[in-house]
Amino acid sequence: MEGKQRSNVKFVFLKCGVVSQAKGSAYFEVDNTKLIVSVYDPREIPKKTDYSSKGELFCIFKYAPFSCPNRRAHQPDADEKQHSAIVKRALESAVCRHEFPNFQVDVYILVLENDGSALSGAITAAGIALAQAGIPMYDTITAATLAIQGTTKLLDPTLEEETLCTVATHKSDTEIDYDSHGIIVLAMLSTHEQISEFYQLGNLDLETLNESVNILMNAAKDIVPLVEKCLVDYVTKTLKSNAES
């Protein structure tokens, strides 16, 4: 796979309104990665005594027990906790949190099958679910993952590619230096061209990083029309059902 470049977005499937109990929900699929995000109404924060002028986002990122090659436990492990924090951080800058002070919006992410790029998919899907739930947002949020190993850059990597890119390799047999390698997840607010979250794993040199950020920004922009179409479809559908009733 040496020197391989893949910088076009893979086929992505998006659907909103999949969980009937939730206020807003979205289903996301890229390769074999499948995940569901559900968003619930703002609610009062239990056991909270002080006043906060900004609303809270409560994110839970969960791998289903059967989603990974190895069975996952029901309790959230360190990985899942970190992913939850990343999603929360990414979404916080997209949501108008001042519009629901002292309340909390719950975002539950369930990964049904993990074949890489689950985190970026979760952020994109959460953006759709939040918009469908009618939570005021500054912008549509999209995210993309890039895996890097030396000169190889792979957009939306599979689980295998992700694993290969997290391993450090020497530049050549004679050198001690490690090659650039790692995984970057980038979330972006498209209209305002703002990066809301940047998460990097591994060791990258500056040049690679610059290139990667450009690739990722373009990739994130490429998903925007899909997200918009998904939301427009939802609005037309509800408009129709409103007119009928």
Binding site: A131, Q132, G134, M137, Y138, D139, H192, L231, V232, V235
Partner: peptide, 17 residues
């Protein structure tokens, strides 16, 4: 309602009409 102002423009903050 459902909009916000930024840099001299009005933007939508909801999916709707």
């Amino acid at each position: 309602q459902g909009t916000y102002e930024r840099q001299g423009y009005i933007y939508s903050s909801l999916a709707g009409i």
